[in-house]
Amino acid sequence: MKKISYKVNRAASGGPRKARGKIQKVRSLNITSLIDILTILLVFLIKNVSLDAERLTVPDQMALPSSIVAEELEKSGRSVVLKVFTDQILLGSENMYVGTPDDFMTDTDVRNQLLQFMREQSAQIVAQNPDSLPLLLIQADETIQCRYITDIVALGADADFANIYFSTVRGDDPQLLYGS
């Protein structure tokens, strides 16, 4: 009997209240500082993110050459990207497979298909907005031989691209780029 009464008394004297207090402490965990950090990070990332990220990122398995000079795309232009890897050529933001660089040089069908597609792309850009210029942006591996690049540039000119650009990674130090 004594024991029972003791238990009842203990419960009545605030046992459960203590438990509720603990739960409330857990609920009111202070995450304000965490949200502050996340907000700063979010603003920073939004500021730095490029809408052209897909176009102007370094493609996987491609070593782009470095340059100190950096020019900007023609403001009134819209670009079509051509990626020249050592083993394949991809066209457009959809990365349409064209063939290997050697196919491009030797197979007239591959070359004609590429020319036709590039013409369609440039015509589409002009059709969508007559004021905009079709621009060709070439991203190529630095170990690609110029025989391919020269022909691709010529094809781009044939396909009515107003300007042709080479995409590079921006470097800062001339001594590092040219001296070593």
Partner: peptide, 29 residues
Amino acid sequence: PIMNLFITIIPMLLMITVTVHMALLSLNL
């Protein structure tokens, strides 16, 4: 909800953020 939003957006932004500065060289034909 806002935490969930942050947890979704931040990894996505980290994935698409450009870490290398790209440059362009124009050509005359």
